[in-house]
Structure formats: C-alpha cells, structure tokens
C-alpha cells in the first residue's frame, strides 16, 4: 500500500490531500508545523497552521495568506481528513494527522515530550504510520529534569550577580529564548532581551503567554543594569562587538547540543545548559512505541542510526530525506539570521 505522505524534492507531500508539509520551495498549499526557518519558508500561495502560533508565524513570514485552526479541529482537504495536534516544541507547534480510508499517518514536525510552560504539551496521537524527527536520535542525548536545569541557571545568575557580572545566555531567538525566560526567577535581577529576542517575546505575550518582564537590551538599559542583568541573546550574538558593552559577564548557551562537552567548549561559553526543545533519545523511543505505529519514517537528524536501531528491534523503519540536516546546530536555523541590534 502506498504511503499517504511521501518525500519529494519540495518536502513532504500528501497527494490525496493536495498539500505539502513544511515545503522548502514555494507550493500551492503548505501546512506549517511551526515557525522556525527550516520549516516555515516564504513564497507559497496558501498556508495552513495552528491558531496558537499565528502571531509568531506572521512575525516571521510577514504578510501571507494564512488559515489557522484550533488543535484537534478537523478539516477536509481533497480526499483526506487533516487535523493539527500540539507538538510541544514551541508556541503553536503542531503535529499533522492525516486520515484516509481508515489509515492514519502522523508527521510530528519538531517536538519534545518535556514540560514547557510557554506552549501546549505534546499530545500523543495514535497512528499507523509515524514520521518522526530525530534531531537528537542518539543515546548520548538524554535530558536532565528541566526544573533542576532552571535551578542551575538561576543559581548561575545569582552567583554572577554576587560577583558583579552580567549573565549572558545564548538561546535560539524563537522558542528557546522564551522558554528560558519563563524559567528565570525575576527576583534575582533585571532581564534584558537582545533585539532578535525582543520582538518574538512580544509576539508570545500578545498570544497570551505569561512571561517575566523584560527590557530591550539597549545601550541605556545595559548601562543601568550593569553587573546584575540576565541578557537573553541569540547564539549569533556571541563574539560580536555588541557583547563588549556587557562586560564583565559570564556566558552560557542553552541547547541540547550542550550535552556534549566538546560542543560546549567549541562554543567558548562558560556554561552549557542542556535545554532542548526536541525529544531526547528516550522521548523519541517512547513516542514511537506509544503511538502504536507499525511503520516509522525518520527525518531530520541521526536518521541512519535511528533507522538501523529500530529495524534491528523489529520496527519497520525508513529514512525520509530532508534538505536540512538536523545533525548540525542549524536545525533551528536561527543562526542564519544574525539580526543586529
């Protein structure tokens, strides 16, 4: 039997429904799982996405023909029934469920199973065919408890305040930055947001997400808060002239890649906090098991290792090619946009 959804040179395609999911070239109808640049590309005629993520998506792609739907709300497209379900990756991120003739295929998009106060939690959607991301599909990636991690971040901040230093935490501007912000304890000191983070944080607040207060990291704000501020900035800001006015400061990066010591040292940051918006090894396998899917497609990341491992476990698995290799930090594509102050 043919798969409902298959890989094409423009991205994942559902022929029976006449739409693409996260296409990387312009198409007629694009279902978008979330607003990161490697998933939401400009130029398509019509877009479909979750209501929860509308503001963020518009912030990213500007004026576009966009229809939004609530999570779980059914819509008919061609011969198939489509619905969006929370993926827990960031605000408005969706899994795409496609049903045809009693068969169900789910495309996870990027997802995580850990708790995140800035978006709806991941929903397990039973299916026959699951196409899952596996950005962190190796057993070296197993996330610590997020609460413990935020305790560590706040303790680091507190220590820096005592030493009279600013704290600069690098986090992808969309999603990670807001999740970090939500976990900060604002009683420790003032929180500043780099320009690239500031606008998206506003889009989060306008979408109804409750976040601690922040100030734009202007020259003036930096001067006034010297020695006690927590500054949230995109990774691309590291090593730029902008950083100079924040000195003295301690630097950190919040990313799943920080699980590996070498990556932390390569980034030349003082601290690496293992905080990811993707599922870890255990999260991926639990999801694969719990959906009950008989056929698994793996995409974005360590696809060779994942498919070999699953096949050896007796789970029929195939690789779904993608133009973006999730194996690099570019999976969140934030690095491509080094928005200056």
């Amino acid at each position: 039997m043919d798969d409902l959804i298959r890989a094409t040179d423009r991205g994942l395609y559902c022929e029976a429904g006449g739409f693409y999911i996260d296409p990387w070239r312009p198409v007629d109808r694009a279902v978008i799982t979330h607003a990161h640049a490697d998933h939401a590309r400009p130029g398509s005629k019509r877009y479909i996405a979750s209501r929860a993520g509308e503001r963020v998506l518009r912030h990213r792609l500007g004026d576009l023909s966009l229809e939004t739907f609530d999570y779980g709300e059914p819509l008919d497209m061609g011969k198939v029934k489509v619905s969006l379900h929370p993926a827990g990756h960031l605000l408005g991120s969706s899994q795409v469920r496609v049903e045809h003739d009693g068969r169900v295929c789910v495309v996870t998009g990027d997802y995580k199973t850990d708790a995140d106060p800035t978006c709806e939690p991941f929903e397990l959607v039973p299916c026959d065919h699951l196409i899952t991301e596996c950005t962190f599909g190796l057993p070296i990636y197993r996330w610590p408890d997020p609460q413990k991690l935020f305790d560590d971040i706040n303790a680091w901040w507190r220590g820096n305040v005592e030493a009279g230093k600013n704290s600069v935490i690098f986090a992808y501007a969309l999603g990670k930055a807001q999740r970090v912000l939500a976990g900060l304890d604002p009683s420790i000191g003032p929180i500043l947001a780099h320009g690239a983070v500031d606008g998206l944080t506003r889009a989060y607040r306008e979408s109804g997400v409750d976040l601690p207060p922040t100030r734009h990291a202007s020259a003036e704000a930096v001067k006034e808060t010297k020695g006690s501020a927590m500054v949230i900035a995109p990774p691309s800001a590291n090593g730029t002239a902008w950083m100079k006015k924040l000195r003295p400061c301690s630097t950190a990066m919040a990313s799943g890649w920080m699980a590996v010591r070498g990556r932390r040292r390569f980034r030349s940051v003082d601290r690496g906090f293992v905080l990811s918006d993707h599922a870890d090894w255990d999260g991926l396998h639990q999801t694969i098991r719990d959906t009950g899917a008989k056929r698994i497609g793996v995409t974005h990341g360590y696809v060779d290792a994942m498919s070999r491992f699953l096949n050896e476990q007796g789970v029929e698995t195939h690789v779904v090619p993608t133009r973006f290799e999730g194996e690099s930090d570019a999976s969140d594509a934030e690095r491509q946009e080094s928005e200056p102050q």
């Binding site: 190796l138 057993p139 070296i140 360590y302 290792a305």
Partner: peptide, 26 residues
C-alpha cells in the same frame, strides 16, 4: 550494561569524539 548494540556506541563515539564521555553518557 546499557543494552545498546556496540555499533551504536561507536556511532555515538563518532559524535562525541571522546570515549570516556561517550560511555558516561550512554
């Protein structure tokens, strides 16, 4: 100890680049 096949540990080692760390992680 981990129930992971040896080839997968080698794969991980290729990413981590340090055997001590790889084993601690898996």
């Amino acid at each position: 100890e981990s129930g992971l096949p040896p080839w997968l540990i080698s794969e991980c080692y290729g990413v981590v680049g340090d055997l001590s760390e790889t084993l601690a992680l898996v």
